[in-house]
Amino acid sequence: MCAVRLAPAPLVVSLSCDLDNPIKIRAKHKVAGMLLLDRDYANRLERSWNVPGAYILLDRPDAEGRWGAYIGKATSPGLRQRVLQQLKGRDHWYRALLIRYESNDDERLNSSEAGWLEGRLYDHLAGAGQVNLHNRNRPQDPTLSDDEETSLIDYLLPVTSVLRLIGHNLHPRNPNAPDGGGPLVKMIKRGPAPAPGEPQPYVSVFGYGPNRYLLQDPTWEELQERIALINAGKNPLRVEKDSGKHP
């Protein structure tokens, strides 16, 4: 029976001042080192990433939040060379998430561990409602000892967290969620056009509206009144609804 780690590890995300540089990510337990790489940066990937590991090629999410992915592994010479090969072999991806061992400089994943990780990542994404895998077949991962599997399980949760962080959710949103559960590009059915001189209906940058938390064309008196309610520890929306200002 394989042991399971339940405690999640915090992620450490390093952003460069140069926005063209990839985003470096590692789990706090110092096992999983990750790099989020834009496709047009692949040719400049550091040679230190020519080590064994697994990778996920990511398609952009569509209007429904679904996205495609290809999962692979690299053994010799390593991840850098494999990603360069995938520039020519696959044209669907816009980003790649590279995963390697990152604890001691003289240690790295072996080919069996990279293959096991590739297979488990495939299983993890294959069961997700928002993901279409480009792999034709499930990777054949080798059998490892319980101790080896236990150490590699620590990789899976950080990978899922990174995907969520960059907007690649594994499962559809709950339709009863506060924001409606739809994708950010959800279209709004607009009502009749306002009369000349009337304010335009508010639509947020996320595609949702109207937003009752924001005052439209407020007067100075309305602003002072709302600030006073907030300072008094009251919910302005509830007070305004009770007073008949909001339906």
Score class of each variant (00 low, 15 high):
residue 9 A to D: 09
residue 15 L to M: 05
residue 17 C to G: 06
residue 17 C to H: 10
residue 18 D to G: 08
residue 18 D to K: 13
residue 20 D to K: 14
residue 21 N to K: 10
residue 24 K to T: 09
residue 25 I to K: 02
residue 28 K to T: 13
residue 28 K to A: 15
residue 35 L to M: 02
residue 36 L to H: 06
residue 37 L to V: 15
residue 37 L to I: 12
residue 38 D to E: 13
residue 41 Y to E: 12
residue 43 N to A: 07
residue 44 R to M: 03
residue 44 R to T: 08
residue 44 R to W: 08
residue 48 S to M: 02
residue 48 S to G: 08
residue 50 N to A: 13
residue 52 P to E: 07
residue 60 R to W: 14
residue 61 P to I: 09
residue 61 P to E: 14
residue 66 R to F: 12
residue 69 A to C: 08
residue 69 A to Y: 01
residue 70 Y to F: 13
residue 70 Y to A: 01
residue 73 K to I: 01
residue 73 K to A: 03
residue 73 K to Q: 12
residue 74 A to N: 07
residue 74 A to V: 04
residue 75 T to W: 04
residue 75 T to N: 10
residue 76 S to V: 14
residue 77 P to Y: 10
residue 83 V to S: 05
residue 83 V to K: 03
residue 84 L to F: 04
residue 86 Q to T: 06
residue 87 L to K: 04
residue 91 D to K: 14
residue 92 H to S: 10
residue 94 Y to W: 14
residue 95 R to L: 15
residue 97 L to F: 09
residue 97 L to D: 01
residue 102 E to F: 08
residue 113 E to F: 01
residue 115 G to Q: 06
residue 116 W to H: 00
residue 117 L to C: 07
residue 117 L to W: 00
residue 120 R to A: 05
residue 122 Y to C: 00
residue 123 D to C: 11
residue 123 D to W: 04
residue 124 H to Q: 15
residue 125 L to G: 02
residue 126 A to H: 09
residue 127 G to S: 14
residue 127 G to Y: 00
residue 127 G to W: 06
residue 129 G to R: 11
residue 130 Q to T: 12
residue 133 L to T: 10
residue 135 N to K: 01
residue 138 R to F: 00
residue 138 R to Q: 10
residue 142 P to Y: 11
residue 142 P to W: 12
residue 143 T to L: 15
residue 143 T to D: 07
residue 144 L to E: 04
residue 146 D to R: 12
residue 147 D to M: 06
residue 152 L to P: 03
residue 152 L to W: 09
residue 152 L to F: 13
residue 159 V to W: 00
residue 163 L to I: 02
residue 166 I to W: 12
residue 166 I to T: 08
residue 169 N to V: 04
residue 171 H to K: 09
residue 172 P to C: 03
residue 177 A to H: 14
residue 180 G to S: 12
residue 180 G to K: 13
residue 182 G to D: 10
residue 183 P to A: 13
residue 185 V to Y: 10
residue 185 V to Q: 13
residue 187 M to R: 14
residue 195 A to T: 12
residue 196 P to K: 13
residue 196 P to S: 15
residue 199 P to D: 02
residue 200 Q to M: 14
residue 200 Q to P: 00
residue 201 P to H: 13
residue 204 S to R: 08
residue 205 V to L: 15
residue 205 V to P: 01
residue 207 G to N: 06
residue 209 G to F: 01
residue 209 G to I: 05
residue 210 P to T: 06
residue 210 P to C: 11
residue 213 Y to A: 12
residue 216 Q to H: 04
residue 216 Q to A: 09
residue 228 A to I: 10
residue 229 L to N: 00
residue 230 I to L: 11
residue 230 I to S: 01
residue 236 P to V: 02
residue 236 P to A: 07
residue 237 L to C: 01
residue 239 V to Q: 09
residue 241 K to P: 05
residue 241 K to Q: 03
residue 242 D to E: 15
residue 246 H to A: 05
residue 246 H to W: 13
